[in-house]
Design a protein around this nucleic acid. Structure first.
Length: 813
RNA sequence: GCCGGGGUGGCGAAACUGGCAGACGCACAGGACUUAAAAUCCUGAGAGGGUAACCCCCUCGUGCGGGUUCGAUUCCCGCCCCCGGCACCA
C-alpha cells in the first residue's frame, strides 16, 4: 500500500463528492430530517482557521447525522451586502459587486478544499436580486401589518461610515464596526416593530433549553423588561400634566422632585414662558450636547437646573419643583422622572447637591411611613394598592417598560437592499407592487463616501410614477440594514430557488426549525434576536409553524494566535490553505476538533496540528497492517466464545469506544474527547497487532475495530477515511455506510478493578470477577494487606460498598 | 453595581450522577531500529519524600479559607482573580 499522502486523497474525494452530488438533498418523508447550519459568512476575502473552525464543527455533526440515517440539510451561503465592500469601492474604485463576487469565489474554494459537506446547490448570496427581492416582499408585508413604519427620530449616526446605526450596533457609545464615537441626528427612518414581540421574545427564551445560558442572559438583559406604572403629575397652574414612569410607585409620597430629560418636549415650552428664554435654552443645550456615551454610561456628573415651575404630587398634593436633569434619559420611559431622594441613589446625589428636600417614606422594615393612609403598609403591598388607586383615580396605570427599542433599518448607503417604497406627493408612502419586485440596485453608482444615500444621485432610480395615481413620485433611496438579510436566510435554504415566494411553507415545515446552529458568540444579541423576531413575523404571516428558529445553539470559541484574535492588521492570521498544503485537510480538521471543546477559545499551535497528522498516518498504517487478512476474513459474525483474551480485549475496547464517541459527538458536542477515545482505540489496536496473533479470527476482530474506527473518524477526517473504507473493500463509499452500534455485552468488563479506601484514602486496587457478592467483596477488602496495615490499632466502624461496585470505603476509628 | 462563564501538571485538556485526579495529545527524556539522522515503534514522567536497591511505600496536590460527607475538581458558606455581557433604565 502507498504511504499516506493526504493531499492526493483530498483531491480525489472532493472530486468524487462533487460529481456524485453527495450532499444534495430533497424532502424525504421516509427519513427523519436534520437541519444543520453554521452562520453564513461575510465574504471578506479570506477565511482563516478561526472562521473555519465553525464550519468543521457543523460538518462533523452533519456527517454523523448522515451516517445515523438522517436526511441532512447542510447548506451554505454569503452575507454579501455590507459596508466593507462599499468602503473598499470608495477607496480603490472597485465596484462592490465585483469585489464581493470575487471574495465569494475564493472563500468557496477554501471551504471546498476543506471538504465541508455542503449542499452547494442551495448556495445563496444576499446581494443577488433573487434573494433580496424577498427582503422587499417581506418588508411590504410588514408595512401592510404596521410592523414596518416610518417616523422622524433621533438616531445614532456614525460619522465615519456615514450611516445610521441600530441601537444594537452601538457599543459603548461607538460604532460596532469602526469604533468611531456615535453622534445624534434627526432623520426620517424606517423601523421594524420588534417591540411588538418583546414580551414573547423574553418569555420564550426560557424554553430555549439547548441554548447557552450566556446568550439567553444577554438577550434577557437586552430586552430589559421592567414592571411599573405611569403616573401623571399636574403642572401647577395649568390643566396639563407630566407623565412619569416609575417602578416604585410605593415611594410616591417621597417624590419631592420632578425631573425632565433635557430633550423633553416641555423644556422648550418652559423656556419660552420663562423670564430669560435664551439663558434657559443655553443651560438645556449644554446638557444636550454633553457627550452622549458619557451621559449614557453615567460618566458625567449629575447636574440640573430649576425650571421655575412646579408640579403637584397627586398623593401629597404638595407642589414639587420641576428640574431639568442631565441624567434623565429621553428615550427611556416617558423622559420624565419623579425624584425620590430618600430611596433612589441617583436622586439622592442630585438632591444633596442642590439642597433639595429628602423625605423617607419606607422604614428599615420595608413598611411605609409619611405616606398618609398607607402608613404601616408593607412596600410590596403598597406597590399594588397605590397602582390600583392611581388607576381608579384616572391619574395613572400599571405598565411594562422595555429597554428594547424598535429596530431602525434605514441605511444611507448603496450596497444593500433598496427599500421598496415610493413617496408620492398625493398618496404619501406607497409600496412598490409585488409584481414589480425586485427593485434592483442600479449597477452604476458613484462612491464618494459623502453622507447622503448614493442612490439619491441616480435620477433614473429616484424618479418614478406613483403606483396608485400615476403621478410623478420619488423612490425611497435608503437601503436596508444588512441584518435584515441574515434574519431569515435559514428559511431560504429550505427552498433556495423558489421564484414565487421566499420559500414554500411546506418545505420549511419539513426542514425547520434548524436543529443545530453554530456560530460566533458576537451574534448573541443582534443576529439571534432579529432572527427570532423574523420567525415570529413569518409565523404570524402563516408561513412557518414554529416560532423559535434554532433549536440547539452552539457558540464556538475563537482561535487565537500568540494570545490574540487573528486579524490581518495584527499579522497573525493562520491560513487554512497553507496548512492543508503541508498536512492535508483532514489533519487540520481533526486538530481543530481535538484541541479543546468547541465553545472554548483555543490557542493555535503548529505542533498540535502535526500531532494530528501523525495520528492519521498511524491509523493509515494500522489499517494497512490488517488489510489483506481482514478483507479475506470477511464480515461474518464473530463467535465471542472462541476468542482469545487479547481478541476479547480489543472487541471490548471497540464497543466501549463506539459508545463513548457516539455520546461525545451527538449528545455532548465534546468533539475533543471523542477524538481522544478513538486515539485510545488505535493504541489498543497497535498493542493487539504487536502480539502477533494472525489467525482468521484475529483478523475479523481487527477488522471490526478498524472499520468501526473508519466510520467514526470519517466526520473528522472524511478524505482519509473514504480511502481506507474503499481499501477495505467497500466500493459504494461512506455514503452507504452506517454509524456503528455499540454492543453493551461485549463492552462489559470481564474483571472489575475495585479501589479500596481507608478513611477516604486510596490504599489498594483489587481485581475481582463481576459475579462477586457484596459480602465476598467486603471480606476481600478486610483481608487486604494494605487495608490491614492502615487499620492496625483501629476498629472498623463501617464498610461502604458503593452501588455499582465502583469502590469499597472502609471507615476505621 | 447586577448577570453569566471560568481558575486542574511545563502546555492544550480529561474526570458524564459525590467514588482511583491528570485519560488523550503537545513539548520533553530514555530505549529499539539505523553507518548516522529523520521517520517509526516501545517506555517514562503532578510535586516532594522513604528504602542499598527493585517490586514498592508515605505525605502533599484541582485559585484561597471554612463546612457537609466514609469519600469533594464536583455540593454548601465566605473570599480572591480572570473572561464576557449589561449598567444614571427611574
Amino acid at each position: 500500500m502507498a504511504d499516506y499522502h493526504p493531499q492526493e486523497l483530498d483531491k480525489k474525494w472532493q472530486a468524487h463528492w462533487a460529481s456524485t452530488k453527495a450532499f444534495e438533498v430533497t424532502e424525504d418523508y421516509s427519513k427523519p430530517k436534520f437541519y444543520c447550519l453554521e452562520m453564513f459568512a461575510y465574504p471578506s476575502g479570506h477565511a482563516h482557521v478561526g472562521h473555519v473552525r465553525n464550519y468543521i464543527i457543523g460538518d462533523v455533526v452533519s456527517r454523523l447525522k448522515r451516517l445515523q440515517g438522517f436526511n441532512v440539510l447542510h447548506p451554505f451561503g454569503w452575507d454579501a451586502f455590507g459596508l466593507p465592500a462599499e468602503n473598499a469601492a470608495i477607496k480603490h474604485g472597485i465596484h462592490p459587486e465585483a469585489s464581493t463576487l470575487g471574495n465569494i469565489a475564493h472563500m468557496k474554494g477554501q471551504l471546498q478544499r476543506l471538504g465541508i459537506s455542503y449542499a452547494w446547490g442551495r448556495e445563496l448570496a444576499t446581494c443577488m436580486p433573487d434573494y433580496y427581492r424577498w427582503n422587499q416582499w417581506l418588508f411590504t408585508r410588514m408595512f401592510e401589518r404596521g410592523l414596518a413604519y416610518r417616523r422622524r427620530s433621533t438616531v445614532n449616526w456614525c460619522p465615519v461610515d456615514n450611516t445610521v446605526l441600530a441601537n444594537e450596533q452601538v457599543v459603548d457609545g461607538a460604532c460596532w464596526r469602526c469604533g468611531t464615537a456615535v453622534v445624534q441626528k434627526d432623520l426620517e427612518q424606517w423601523f421594524f416593530k420588534i417591540t411588538h414581540y418583546a414580551d414573547d421574545l423574553l418569555q420564550a427564551a426560557d424554553g430555549l433549553s439547548k441554548w447557552p445560558e450566556k446568550v439567553l442572559t444577554m438577550q434577557r438583559n437586552w430586552i430589559g423588561r421592567s414592571e411599573g406604572a405611569r403616573v401623571r403629575f399636574q403642572i401647577q397652574g395649568t390643566d396639563e400634566s407630566i407623565e412619569v414612569f416609575t417602578t416604585r410607585i410605593d415611594t410616591i409620597y417621597g417624590a419631592t422632585l420632578m425631573m425632565l430629560a433635557p430633550e423633553h418636549g416641555l423644556v422648550n415650552r418652559f423656556a419660552k414662558e420663562s423670564d430669560d428664554e435664551k439663558a434657559f435654552m443655553a443651560k438645556a443645550q449644554k446638557f444636550r450636547s454633553q457627550d452622549r456615551s458619557d451621559r449614557l454610561t453615567g460618566q458625567v456628573e449629575k447636574e440640573g437646573f430649576f425650571t421655575g415651575r412646579f408640579a403637584i404630587n397627586p398623593y401629597t398634593n404638595q407642589p414639587i419643583p420641576i428640574w431639568v436633569a442631565n441624567y434623565v434619559l429621553a428615550e427611556y420611559g416617558t423622559g420624565a422622572v419623579m425624584g425620590v431622594a430618600a430611596h433612589d441613589e441617583r436622586d439622592h446625589d442630585f438632591a444633596s447637591k442642590y439642597g433639595l428636600p429628602i423625605v423617607p417614606v419606607i422604614n428599615e422594615q420595608g413598611v411605609l411611613i409619611n405616606s398618609g393612609t398607607y402608613d404601616g403598609t408593607p412596600a410590596g403591598d403598597a406597590l399594588k394598592a397605590i397602582t390600583e388607586d392611581a388607576e381608579a383615580r384616572g391619574i395613572g396605570e400599571g405598565t411594562v417598560q422595555f429597554r428594547l427599542k424598535d429596530w431602525g433599518i434605514s441605511r444611507q448607503r448603496y450596497w444593500g437592499t433598496p427599500i421598496p417604497m415610493i413617496h408620492c406627493p398625493v398618496d404619501g408612502i406607497v409600496p412598490v407592487p409585488d409584481e414589480q419586485l425586485p427593485v434592483e440596485l442600479p449597477k452604476v453608482a458613484e462612491f464618494t463616501g459623502r453622507g447622503d444615500s448614493p442612490l439619491a444621485s441616480i435620477p433614473e432610480f429616484v424618479n418614478v410614477t406613483c403606483p396608485k395615481c400615476g403621478g410623478a413620485a420619488r423612490r425611497e433611496t435608503d437601503t436596508m440594514d444588512t441584518f435584515v438579510d441574515s434574519s431569515w436566510y435559514f428559511y431560504r435554504f429550505c427552498d433556495a430557488h423558489n421564484d414565487q415566494l421566499p420559500f414554500d411553507p411546506k418545505k420549511v415545515a419539513y426542514w425547520g426549525p434548524v436543529d443545530f446552529y453554530s456560530g460566533g458568540v458576537e451574534h448573541a444579541i443582534l443576529h439571534l434576536i432579529y432572527s427570532r423576531f423574523f420567525s415570529r413575523v413569518f409565523h404570524d404571516l402563516g408561513m412557518v409553524e414554529h416560532t423559535e428558529p434554532f433549536t440547539h445553539l452552539l457558540t464556538q470559541g475563537m482561535v487565537l494566535k500568540d494570545g490574540n484574535v487573528m486579524s490581518k492588521s495584527k499579522g497573525n492570521v493562520v491560513d487554512p490553505d497553507s496548512m492543508i498544503q503541508k498536512y492535508g485537510s483532514d489533519a487540520l480538521r481533526l486538530y481543530v476538533m481535538f484541541v479543546a471543546p468547541p465553545e472554548k477559545e483555543v490557542e493555535w499551535t503548529d505542533s498540535g496540528l502535526e500531532g494530528s497528522f501523525r495520528f492519521l498516518a498511524r491509523v493509515w498504517r494500522g489499517a494497512d497492517q490488517w488489510r489483506e487478512e481482514a478483507v479475506a476474513a470477511g464480515t461474518g459474525a464473530i463467535d465471542q466464545a472462541t476468542l482469545t483474551g487479547a481478541e476479547r480485549a480489543l472487541r471490548r475496547k471497540t464497543h466501549e469506544t463506539i459508545k463513548r464517541v457516539t455520546t461525545d459527538i451527538d449528545v455532548r458536542q465534546q468533539m475533543n474527547t471523542a477524538v481522544s477515545a478513538m486515539m485510545e482505540l488505535v493504541n489498543e489496536l497497535y498493542l493487539f497487532t504487536d502480539k502477533g496473533e494472525r489467525s482468521a479470527q484475529a483478523a475479523k476482530v481487527a477488522r471490526e475495530a478498524i472499520e468501526s474506527l473508519i466510520v467514526m473518524l470519517s466526520p473528522f477526517a472524511p478524505h482519509t477515511m473514504e480511502e481506507l473504507w474503499q481499501m477495505y473493500g467497500h466500493a459504494d463509499g461512506l455514503a452507504a455506510a452506517q454509524w456503528p452500534v455499540a454492543d453493551a455485552d461485549i463492552a462489559k468488563a470481564e474483571e472489575l478493578e475495585i479501589p479500596l479506601q481507608v478513611n477516604g484514602k486510596l490504599r489498594d486496587v483489587v481485581r475481582v470477577a463481576p459475579s462477586i457478592t457484596d459480602a465476598e467483596l467486603e471480606a476481600l477488602a478486610r483481608a487486604n494487606a494494605n487495608v490491614i496495615a492502615h487499620t492496625a490499632g483501629k476498629t472498623i466502624a463501617k464498610v461502604v460498598i458503593v452501588p455499582g461496585r465502583k469502590l469499597v470505603s472502609i471507615v476505621a476509628k
